[in-house]
């Protein structure tokens, strides 16, 4: 099966392992990820104001490319996923946004939110199936792993619709499928401090410190995440207590690719 794939700029630079192992694992699982043509940066964060049109255009370009190819669009970075999925929702639901974006871009075939946007974790759960992943594992990870969701994968729950935003299971089920033991921290869906790392580093110091401490106290040996900024904040502010890696790295290890 072929999918359109949106890597995003951080995955081409500081988060190369998130991208590299996403591609390798997809191939091993029998799927083909075709990069979107001439994609541009999603902007990192979604702007919620409805009159913010320009900040939504790069996402619409990627979405239109996938639609024209007749493919679903797979994302892997939590931030890109949040931005693209929310813009897609605006294009489907908000006439105000849809009209202005199409008037500006003048595509041959106006875009109306037709593309199905799926995060790589949803690709694993819903397209491949965790049962099939379990069968493909050659090197069970056998570690106690805490899943850190952060905010972007889950909220707003009504639009992201990946899982229950307050009590998610997808990453824990992923950990079980690759042979690990999930460790649940109450901070797994609380913010790491995000972009405040550039303007007020006290916030990520406090928030990320709490998250890593909590995972350690619950007995985790490792933390996994899908977001490069979460990874950065947790590593920078959590000390060297626990290794913090991308979920695609640990998947590659389990599939015997890494």
């Amino acid at each position: 099966m072929k999918y359109s794939y949106y890597p995003g700029c951080t995955l081409k630079t500081k988060a190369k392992d998130l991208d590299l192992y996403a591609r390798k694992c997809a191939e091993a699982l029998g799927a083909e990820l075709e990069e979107v043509d001439e994609w541009q940066c999603c902007g990192g964060v979604y702007t919620t104001a409805q009159d913010e049109i320009a900040t939504k255009l790069s996402s619409v370009r990627a979405l239109t490319c996938a639609r024209d190819r007749g493919q679903a669009l797979v994302t892997v970075c939590s931030a890109c996923h949040n931005v693209i999925k929310r813009v897609n929702n605006d294009m489907a639901e908000s006439e105000y946004v849809r009209t202005r974006v199409n008037n500006y871009m003048q595509p041959e075939n106006p875009y109306k939110g037709e593309t199905k946007v799926i995060h790589y974790l949803e690709f694993l759960r819903d397209e491949v199936g965790f049962d099939n992943i379990k069968k493909a594992v050659v090197n069970p990870v056998k570690r106690r792993i805490a899943a850190y969701y952060g905010c972007l994968l889950l909220r707003p729950g009504s639009v992201m619709a990946m899982d229950n935003p307050e009590n998610p299971k997808i990453l824990e089920n992923f950990i079980t499928a690759i042979g690990g033991t999930p460790v649940v921290s109450p901070y797994r869906n609380e913010c790491c401090g995000a972009y405040l790392t550039l303007t007020d580093s006290a916030a990520p110091e406090k928030r990320s410190g709490l998250i890593v401490d909590s995972c350690e106290k619950k007995g985790a040996e490792m933390i996994i995440t899908a977001c490069p900024l979460c990874l950065y904040n947790l590593k920078k502010n959590g000390g060297d207590k626990l290794p913090i890696v991308y979920f695609t790295e640990i998947l590659a290890e389990a599939l015997g690719i890494k």
Partner: peptide, 28 residues
């Protein structure tokens, strides 16, 4: 603007993801 481009060089380290910079610019 709440964040000025000239302030960026002294705030970054080699691990900082691009995502942090674009997000901050979009918000500030």
């Amino acid at each position: 603007n709440y964040l000025k481009p000239d302030e960026i060089p002294q705030k970054i380290d080699e691990d900082l993801p691009q995502q942090a910079i674009v997000s901050a610019f979009r918000k500030y």
